[in-house]
Design a protein around this nucleic acid. Sequence first.
DNA 1: CTGTTAGCGCCTTCAG
DNA 2: CTGAAGGCGCTAACAG
Lengths: 329, 329
Amino acid sequence: MITIKDVAAEAGVAISTVSKVLNGYDGVSRSTRDKVNNAVDRLGFTPNAVASALSSKQSGRIALLLKMGPDNSAMDEINMRYLSGAIRSAMDNRLDAVTIMHEMISGLDKEALISYLRSQSIEGLIIFGLNREDSVLLDLISSQVFKTVVVDAPITNRSTASVSIDYAQAQYDVIMRTFENIEGNRILYIAGKDSSYSTSEKLKAIERLDHELGVKSRIIYGDFSELKAREAVFEYAEKSDIIACGSDLMAIGAMRALMELDIFKPVCGFGGVRLMSYAGKQMNTVRQDFENLAREAITLLKDLLGGKEGTAHCAGYELVRMKYADALK
Amino acid sequence: MITIKDVAAEAGVAISTVSKVLNGYDGVSRSTRDKVNNAVDRLGFTPNAVASALSSKQSGRIALLLKMGPDNSAMDEINMRYLSGAIRSAMDNRLDAVTIMHEMISGLDKEALISYLRSQSIEGLIIFGLNREDSVLLDLISSQVFKTVVVDAPITNRSTASVSIDYAQAQYDVIMRTFENIEGNRILYIAGKDSSYSTSEKLKAIERLDHELGVKSRIIYGDFSELKAREAVFEYAEKSDIIACGSDLMAIGAMRALMELDIFKPVCGFGGVRLMSYAGKQMNTVRQDFENLAREAITLLKDLLGGKEGTAHCAGYELVRMKYADALK
DNA sequence: CTGTTAGCGCCTTCAG
DNA sequence: CTGAAGGCGCTAACAG
């Protein structure tokens, strides 16, 4: 293995000088910088990240915490988008991202978790899919031991930032669009989970609709399950004019149920996953750019690691209409 | 941060002794071992993996190479299964897994890639989704610079092992089952990609059917695309008795096309992803246990890192019939 | 602007 | 069976 020492010798300078140019510090003349860079190229030197981490006490390692959830393809699709965005962005930011599934650490208490993360030299965390039931994680966040970015939950403190879209507005928008050309004002809202932060936000949209437009809404918790959404539709569809769902997967379940009942009611979803194309009819949904959300999360984390304070950020979304053709690329 | 030194002091022994019990070496008396372990617990010590890696020159880091492929949920589902299995298993084996997407390194030539992986202190690779067109990776494998396990491609050498299911047999089995109660022997086989190793294997099943049963088969390359499978069906379904597809996604496309044509032909897929439930009718498919495949890959890699030679391994599969209810959990 | 010199935390011979 | 000592490759003051 060829080391910084070899480079120094090759370039005819001191070891620390090499380190400086490698790390982009200033205080090195143009000419020595060139000498060093040439030596690096000539020798095909690549710095040893481990040694660097040990020495600088900065590993640049971050953990991506994903929730796999009960097996379903929609969740997989979303997680994959998150991952893809986060990993790429981490690479661009010279951060070293390891991914961890919630279940892998679900047995640990706060102390054990901290100790585990420390032993992995993890400096920062990005938490996807956090909800109010994740008490250990919530504690971890308040402890402020690690710099963390929470995606889709409005939690911040000095070392915690958050990103998400404006769920209340997005949910409002997609329902409004779905109301176009519809008579009636009874909405069956199939919400996600009580413990989900985004679900609470989305429910604000329903409240707002109630007040602003005198909409009559019935709220059922579908727990993000296709099956439960299906059952809700069997039970309440007749008495509703539109069916709004807190997730695309539930929208699929709802649409399938309607088809079996052989009645038509407009349905809207939330998320914008390709899977939705399989619902059977085209539907409105809110498309979240999951990759971008992850990228923003990385940027925020980088800032936190750089010493900035945590803040809440808002990402964009888009209203779209998905149909089977969307699945065909 | 509390170090091995503190533990040594607390336990009243030398640093090296602590190191030994930590790493499970023998040559330490039962009583000192206990003293050390107690000290570790009392202090809540967790070893610093970075220092350990630097010192031992064994990072225990492996890279998981995933191919995201053109956006589709089936691929996401499979990748997520692979990842989930690999990451968990890596954790159990005290390996540190980082995931890398093929596209992130697609611009690099062999040298640059080696240098990149080296700089990340990566010792081993697990490559998912390799095909004959990935020349840089193929070169990397033959160079034997890293211990690597290839999933789903029969490549081995002294430092390369492989795992996959017996595609030829599995494809044969699922087609045979689909032939049950069907008259006729004309099969439309929608294959994956020419450059895919598993596709070649699956095609052997067709050959075998031709010889053994006098089946008349027409082979079309669908490139794993739902759309292409759909088009193939529009063109050739009438002249076929069953339609066998090299992937579930293509099977979905095929089934949808049949429904639009309003004719019925049995269809079978391959993979066993939940997504298949959305095809519209129940279908036979080969269910691969992707998580397990990944776990086996990790085990093999661990062996390779431990000095064993590379070998080819075979994993199991199962024939199943998927229907919409499967999507409902 | 450049070079010298301590460590970072742990592993690993090699004496004792 | 235990302890002392010398690195691993790099960073970061601190002199020069």
